[in-house]
């Protein structure tokens, strides 16, 4: 039980580190590029990829947790993490609705 918890913690740590490092590398290259050439291009694209990676990383962690709890047959927690995921999806949908109105 304990060792499987620790293993899961390390796995989550690895996913978060990969996400945040990828994002920061994209931002660190994209920032000087988009400042040097303000018109849309590679710099702006890298910044957007970096920000998307950043926002997607915690969401990926929630997906991973849901899978883990399903595999463990820990149904209450599988449901709880699914609700969190659903809430994030509602946020994304709400954003698009607002964006259309304005």
């Amino acid at each position: 039980m304990k060792s499987s918890d620790t293993r899961f913690e390390i796995l989550i740590g690895r996913v978060l580190r990969t996400g945040v490092v990828t994002s920061i590398v994209c931002l660190a290259i994209g920032l000087p590029l988009s400042l040097a050439w303000p018109e849309p291009g590679a710099g702006a694209r890298l910044l957007n990829i970096g920000i998307l990676f950043l926002i997607a990383t915690p969401a990926a962690r929630v997906v991973l947790s849901t899978i883990e709890y399903i595999l463990e047959r820990d149904w209450p927690f599988a449901v709880l993490t699914s609700i969190v995921l659903l809430e994030l999806v509602i946020g994304a949908v709400a954003a698009l609705v607002f964006h259309r109105k304005i």
């Binding site: 978060l16 920000i51 926002i55 990383t57 915690p58 969401a59 962690r61 929630v62 969190v84 809430e87 994030l88 946020g91 994304a92 709400a94 954003a95 698009l96 607002f98 964006h99 304005i102």
Partner: peptide
């Protein structure tokens, strides 16, 4: 707070 902030950031980001 990563997931918490994501809930808000998605809305601001999606809304430009």
């Amino acid at each position: 707070i990563g997931v918490t902030a994501t809930g808000g950031a998605i809305i601001y980001y999606g809304n430009g």
